[in-house]
């Protein structure tokens, strides 16, 4: 099928629009489809979290957030500039997190409400996440017992046994 708009390329996208109850359908190629922004294509979402996120870094946004620091414009490690980040919505390398720290801090706070990781530790790997889960489950078990949620407590007890067993096996090997 040929694209309804340019009449040249192969149509690969079907666009259904409903305006005032009147439904129209168009078969478009990728190029023409791209021109119709905001139509929710499966391939390239135009209104993404990243775009909005990058928008938060517009100078006005920074000023509104009360940031006075002169932003470091380029990451020494990967060469990504601040403008690149605003355009891409993604950072360039793990070093960017330290290089742009002053700017990222308020952003992270805004996205996550937090700036301290409490999950699985990235360095240790191995059994660390199991130990953490075990601790967590033990704590929850105490909570469950205190509110007499015995069904939940039984589930947790089984999970704790399972975790202890796995950890014991891994310690042996």
């Amino acid at each position: 099928m040929i694209c309804d708009e340019c009449r040249e390329r192969q149509a690969t996208v079907m666009v259904t629009q409903i305006i005032n109850g009147k439904k129209t359908e168009a078969h478009l190629c990728q190029e023409c489809a791209k021109k119709h922004s905001g139509l929710g294509f499966i391939t390239e979402p135009s209104f993404t979290f990243n775009n909005i996120l990058a928008g938060l870094f517009e100078p006005e946004g920074l000023q509104a957030a009360g940031i006075q620091v002169r932003p470091k414009v380029r990451c020494d490690n990967c060469g990504l500039t601040f403008a690149d980040f605003r355009r891409l919505g993604t950072l360039g390398c793990s070093q960017c997190y330290t290089q742009f720290e002053a700017l990222l801090e308020p952003l992270l706070k805004r996205i996550h409400g937090n700036t301290q990781h409490t999950g699985k530790p990235p360095t240790s790997g191995g059994t660390a996440h199991l130990r953490r889960e075990l601790e967590e489950a033990r704590r929850q078990l105490r909570d469950a017992i205190s509110i007499e949620a015995y069904e939940k407590a039984a589930e947790l007890r089984d999970r704790i046994r399972e975790l202890e067993k796995t950890l014991a096996e891994q310690d042996k090997s």
């Binding site: 996120l53 997190y97 992270l108 700036t115 301290q116 990781h117 990235p122």
Partner: peptide, 13 residues
């Protein structure tokens, strides 16, 4: 990864 920020990803989200 870092102790403070955990696993470092392309997007800060």
């Amino acid at each position: 990864g870092s102790e403070r920020l955990g696993f470092l990803t392309a997007c800060p989200t």
